[in-house]
Computed example of a mutant assay.
Amino acid sequence: MFDPDALPDYQFVTTLSGDSHALASEVPLAVVLNGISHAVMMVSPNQLDAFVTGFLLSEGIIRHHREIHDLEFHWRDRALEASVTLANGSHYRWQEHRRSLAGRTGCGLCGLESIGQALPDLPPLPATSLPPLTTVEALRRQLDDWQPLGQECGALHAAFYADDQGRIQHSCEDVGRHNALDKLLGWHHRHGLGSGGMVLITSRCSVELVQKMARAGQPTLITLAAPTELAVRLARTLGLNLLHLPRRQGPRVYSCHAPAPQTP
């Protein structure tokens, strides 16, 4: 068994002119479910336990982390392998919806075999009030303190979890935007924090990120880059609170299940 935390988050690389810069690490990760290869993705080698949990949860393969009976990492020929033992129920669910993913950084919907797989019917989220917009605006001031790798070497996406008062509690960084969100969803699920609070991502929001939020039961997503039109349509269908936080303007609310509470 291999400890992925032994891999460096970044490495110093010398340019052709002789100066040295910190560059983010990136490794191939093969996810193997009950002995069968499921997906290969390029990831940042940190918080990988949370990543595997969040990936399986947000893909609808598991419904609870207890359905992962065992998780081991192995180093095989310059790549990491996450060997997952699933509960029987999860294994059958996975077989029904099995897909093969091409090995790409932050791969979202590539490799799907049908339109039905790309746009599945998902149950709506429970009604959740929109967070106060002043609370959303205040999140931006906290972001730099929660992106240590991004501050060191850049080129990384980040996902954050903030409580109902807008205080960031945890962050995850990765070369892939989907990976960063999966890491955060896995961490959140393992800590049993329920459906309160809000998730913020530094990237744009495409439809598969809305799907991941819905499968994980998370009701509020805030993005630093604009969502796509299809993402907004799906967010409205599922009852996801979806907000865009531009750099120099106030929050833009694209979807909400319930109005924000009035501040006294």
Rank of each mutant, 00 (worst) to 15 (best):
L57Q: 11
G35W: 10
R63G: 15
L238Y: 01
V52T: 05
L122K: 00
G89F: 03
L16W: 10
R248N: 14
P123R: 01
T128V: 13
E26N: 12
I222P: 10
L230Q: 08
I36K: 15
D174V: 03
P227Y: 02
S100D: 10
D49T: 13
Q249P: 00
G176K: 09
T135E: 02
T202R: 11
G108M: 08
P126K: 01
H244D: 00
L242G: 09
T128R: 13
H188V: 01
T202E: 11
S129D: 09
A158N: 10
T105H: 00
L193E: 08
V40F: 06
I168S: 05
P148V: 03
R247A: 02
E208A: 12
R140P: 05
S203K: 04
H69C: 15
G166C: 07
L243W: 00
Y92F: 14
W146D: 06
P8T: 03
T263F: 02
Y10C: 12
T128I: 08
D164A: 14
E81T: 12
L56I: 13
G194V: 06
R66P: 02
N179H: 07
S58T: 13
C172E: 09
M198W: 00
H74A: 06
A22D: 04
H65L: 03
H157V: 02
H97E: 12
L209M: 10
R167K: 13
P219R: 08
C153E: 00
R76N: 03
A260L: 01
V136L: 07
R204G: 13
I62C: 11
D121S: 11
T237I: 05
A79W: 06
Q142N: 14
F160C: 02
R78E: 14
L80K: 09
L101P: 09
V136N: 07
L122Y: 06
L56M: 13
A118V: 05
L209V: 00
L193Q: 14
H74W: 03
D77S: 08
G196R: 03
A22R: 09
P45R: 04
L33N: 11
A138M: 10
P28Q: 01
I222C: 06
D174N: 09
T202A: 11
V232P: 02
F51V: 06
L224P: 09
V31M: 05
L245Y: 00
T14L: 03
Q117R: 07
L130M: 14
P123V: 00
H74I: 04
S58G: 11
S203A: 12
Q165A: 14
L184A: 04
S171G: 07
Q142S: 14
S58W: 12
P124F: 06
D163A: 08
T202V: 13
G176P: 11
H189F: 13
A216H: 06
G108D: 10
A258L: 15
L125V: 12
P132C: 13
T237P: 04
S114H: 01
H170D: 05
E137H: 07
N34Q: 11
L149E: 03
S171L: 01
H189M: 15
P259T: 04
R140L: 06
G239H: 04
Q142F: 12
T53Y: 03
Q211P: 08
F73H: 00
M213L: 01
L130R: 13
L139F: 05
L48P: 05
F12I: 08
H257R: 15
R177W: 02
A214S: 05
L181S: 01
T85M: 15
P251K: 04
K212Q: 15
I201K: 02
